[in-house]
Amino acid sequence: MKVEIALDALPRMLAGIGLTFQLLLLALGIGTALAVLLLLMRISGRWWLSLPAQAYCYVFRGTPILVQIFIIYYGLPQFEWLRESVLWVVLRDPFGCAVLALALNVGAYVTEILRGGVLSVERGLLEAGAALGMSSTHRFVYITAPLAVRIALPAYGNEIISLLKSTALASTITLADMTGIARTVVAETFAPYEVFISLALVYVSLAWLIQRSMHRVEARIGRYATRRAG
């Protein structure tokens, strides 16, 4: 193990941290929005909304994310109508393809996480809301959603960390994120061990950072749950 190689590689790889974060935040934002939509479809009680959402989650959770990235990046441009549509703005760019693939994937997982939260909201609370005359929309917005979010938060935090690591797959379609740069450095130095170890340390630190912030958020919005003082 040559420490100087690892230390030399570090600043170069960190130049890709911006791209890693862009992939992470964009995919997370779009994916979560998609998840909320899919969740509403799943719990709508209408089969023609719930079934497509269920099928979506099944397909995207059942296939490797790398395969999804390849299908979107290599596969979709084969369709001429796609190349002529506005979607091409996103799909001709590897960055757009990576964000799209990650977002679609995260969307499927977060849907299930949110659904778990919604299902675990106590039925009695919704009955109390109904007895007070609150409409089903009011009950969802003011009772179900805020409680479901609190319950889903730890699993959502896991999903963010998992997504952070999935962004590394973007390097397979030419993107120079941290992993992409690391691969270039390895090709130059022939020192995969040193370079990838130092890359792994960067990811671990980022994951730790995410975990810490999620703990903060949980503690902040979970304070109602504190047991009675005495």
Partner: peptide
């Protein structure tokens, strides 16, 4: 069946305000 994420006061006002 009090709403656990709301203060006592908000438990008492929410339906008045919404309904």
């Amino acid at each position: 069946n009090l709403f656990p994420h709301m203060t006592v006061l908000r438990n008492l006002t929410i339906a008045q305000r919404l309904v």
